[in-house]
């Protein structure tokens, strides 16, 4: 009974999912999360963190080693057809029939997802209009630019009206303007009949801008999961950064003087100090008086990159 209730309210349920590839490469380690219907959920992490493997298991192209996952109650291993029926994917790399027209690509998708020809035609008209593809959809995909192909893939995924939409690094390789416009389109997805979106990205701004909640993934594990605001709030209102010669002793001095807490962290020779209880100007002045900085001292608002850095010691966008 409890499962039935959960299935109605949760679009994606992942429990202790693990993937170990042949050869012993453990790409995903004991990952658990749940995504509510209508939510935009982000898996944020650098390349190789295990995001795409997680999406692969949820879209039934990668077999979990252990653990389970359900899409709207359909177990991805026991009922893969059911799971695929309620979902669609936009892949990291283009997966289009390039010698066919854009419209033909959309038709094939609609028909394979069980829509009748008239339903498919109606859905195609809708998505083509919404994604600004009307003028080019009759051309072969070969003639599309990279941005146009991405929009076509996004439109294709929506033809079948998926309840769960997976976007695997949807803006990788696009120039900044096209990327920005595509993000705008993705942002509009939440207004389309309660589509649940699971987005993987290594772009911080994408996660901050689009996602209701973000799971930060590092070496196959989720190291933090919360709303972007809550994740950022943990790092205070500002971060003060300073270059030092001796990281350990400088950090000890800062902590001794009450200028840095346990959440201060270092990468290389740069110390990053979250400021919670004073203004950035006051913090900079206090630190400058200690005369430990070898370079400039600066302050800025925290980003998800800092959250990731604090948790893992690595930068997201390497």
């Amino acid at each position: 009974m409890q499962r039935t209730t959960k299935a109605r309210t949760l679009a994606v349920e992942v429990e202790r999912l693990t993937k170990i590839y042949p050869g012993g490469v453990d790409a995903v380690k004991d990952v658990s999360f749940a995504v509510a219907a209508g939510e935009v959920f982000g898996l944020l992490g650098p390349n190789g963190a295990g995001k795409s493997t997680t999406v692969g298991m949820l879209t039934t192209t990668i077999r979990p080693t252990t653990g389970s996952a359900r899409l709207l109650g359909h177990d991805v291993v026991a009922d893969p057809l059911g799971a695929r029926q309620v979902s669609a994917v936009v892949f990291q790399e283009a997966a289009l029939d390039r010698s066919l027209t854009g419209r033909r690509n959309l038709e094939i998708h609609g028909r394979l997802w069980g829509l009748s020809p008239p339903e498919t035609a109606t859905m195609i008209d809708d998505v083509v209009e919404a994604f600004g593809l009307a003028d080019i959809v009759g051309r072969t995909v070969d003639t599309f630019s990279g941005g146009q192909r991405r929009r076509l893939e996004l439109a294709r995924a929506l033809v079948s009206r998926p309840r769960v939409l997976f976007l695997d690094e949807p803006t990788v390789g696009l120039d900044p303007r096209i990327r920005f416009e595509l993000l705008d389109l993705i942002g509009g997805l939440r207004q389309r009949a309660e589509t649940t979106v699971v987005l993987t990205t290594h772009y911080l701004d994408e996660a901050e801008r689009l996602c209701d909640r973000v799971a930060i993934v590092h070496e196959g594990r989720i190291v933090a999961l919360d709303t972007p605001d809550n994740l950022l709030a943990g790092l205070g209102r500002h971060l003060v950064e300073l270059r030092v010669d001796d990281v350990a002793s400088s950090l000890a001095v800062l902590r001794q003087r009450g200028l840095a807490g346990e959440d201060a962290f270092a990468v290389g020779g740069t110390l990053t100090v979250p400021v919670h209880d004073r203004s950035a100007r006051e913090a900079i002045s206090a630190i400058a008086r200690l005369d430990i900085a070898t370079g400039g001292i600066s302050a800025r608002p925290p980003t998800l990159d800092d959250v990731y850095l604090r948790l893992t010691g690595d930068r997201l966008a390497a």
Binding site: L185, Q191, R192
Partner: peptide, 14 residues
């Protein structure tokens, strides 16, 4: 490349 960025209209689920 021109892109329509207005939110898509609600569509009846087929």
């Amino acid at each position: 490349t021109a892109i329509t960025t207005a939110p898509p209209a609600p569509i009846v689920v087929p």
